[in-house]
Design a protein around this nucleic acid. Structure first.
Length: 352
DNA sequence: AAGTTCTACAACCGCCCAATA
DNA sequence: GTATTGGGCGGTTGTAGAACT
């Protein structure tokens, strides 16, 4: 059975909002609030608009303290880092950027940031490939672009984009080394991350972090959990690799990489029988490249959101409200500044 | 100057899911 | 337990203005 429409489509105005409509809506909400019912709101104030349209107009444009345009470099970095980490969870990303709406960020990403970054990224990827030892064919192909690389053409465009973005991130403004995301530190609280990972995995650092039960959208705990994941900034599998690397006392610029060049090397030469490629079984790469489950093949569409879905419930949603704040507090008591995000309560989540 | 293409972004659409009846 | 409703979300489209030919 189909769903009843939320409004009478025939008698509803569409298209750009007139200034008078804006005034009506803004005045009413500022005086009376939404009344918890967007659908009924336009009738109350005599607007021939769909309730959803009113909601969108308010949230994306009329609401106080909204910033439009003029994204800063720092905001670019955060958006990019989070996109790599969690994909197109615009509402979650928006929650990290006070004053920005998910719609704004989405538009900004699609129209400018992606082009800007992928333009650079393609070259970066080729640079990296060309530096791989023992693969002169790749070096040769590096000048011919991704599309011509026999090892990369088995990847979907989005997978290549992810790979490119990832490599660009690690080389230019890794979340891990991002002073905006990790203020007052030269790096994230590594020891705490290690502890966090250990607690998540029953005291062991594992490439397969424990999966929490799928949280409910309205459950505030879920929001905190989600926020935690976001703030870590990397899939726990990536975190595990980082932490183990840290333990090996081999932290340097290259180690912010999710995978080593040798692993990438191996990845690129391991094509499976179906034409796709498979990282060496059981390797870290096999875990890392779960994110490439979206590669061509049956069910690929459904798998598009599976990349690190172990860590992130792809069906969950979160509020992007920034009226209140949630902050992370590390065991040291230090707040993770700059990433306080609004949820419904003033939660302070303690990382253990 | 006119026509075409590109870009940015506001707005819409359809789906998902929690809340509620 | 089931159906319905409304809020929220991501993806997509429409359009105005800018840039280009």
């Amino acid at each position: 059975m189909g769903r009843a429409p939320c409004c009478d489509k025939a008698n509803v105005k569409k298209g750009p909002w007139a200034p008078e409509e804006d005034v009506k809506l803004k005045d009413y909400i500022q005086k009376n609030g939404t009344g918890g019912n967007w659908i009924a709101l336009p009738q109350k104030i005599g607007l021939k608009r769909c309730g959803k349209s009113c909601r969108l107009r308010w949230l994306n444009y009329l609401r106080p303290n909204i910033k439009h345009g003029g994204f800063t470099e720092d905001e670019d970095k955060i958006i990019c880092s989070l996109y790599i980490s969690i994909g197109s969870r615009w509402s979650v990303i928006a929650a990290q950027l006070p004053g920005r709406t998910d719609n704004d960020i989405k538009n900004y990403w699609n129209t400018r940031l992606k082009k800007k970054l992928l333009g650079k990224r393609k070259q970066t990827l080729m640079d990296r490939l060309s530096s791989l030892p023992h693969h002169h064919d790749l070096q040769k192909d590096a000048n011919e672009g991704v599309e011509d690389n026999p090892y990369l053409q088995n990847l979907s465009n989005s997978a290549i984009e992810r790979l490119q973005l990832h490599m660009q991130l690690q080389s230019s403004f890794s979340f891990y080394n991002n002073p905006v995301v990790w203020p007052n530190r030269s790096s994230p609280p590594q020891e705490n991350m290690t502890q966090n990972m250990q607690s998540m995995n029953g005291g062991q650092i594992s490439m397969f972090p424990q999966v929490s039960p799928s949280p409910q959208r309205s459950n505030n705990n879920m929001k905190v959990q989600e926020f935690e994941d976001v703030n870590i900034g990397f899939p726990p599998s990536m975190m595990a690799q980082k932490t183990s690397s840290i333990q090996e006392q081999d932290v340097n610029a290259q180690m912010i990489s999710t995978f080593t060049q040798a692993e990438l090397d191996e990845l690129l030469i391991n094509t499976n029988k179906n034409g796709g490629f498979l990282p060496p079984s059981g390797s870290q790469m096999a875990v890392e490249f779960d994110c490439f489950k979206e590669m061509e093949g049956p069910g690929s569409k459904d798998d598009q959101l599976l990349w690190w879905s172990n860590d992130f419930d792809t069906n969950s949603r979160s509020s992007s409200s920034w009226d209140d704040s949630t902050s992370l507090v590390y065991p040291s008591g230090e707040m993770c500044q700059g990433l306080a995000v609004g949820y419904n309560n003033n939660n302070v989540h303690q990382l253990h």
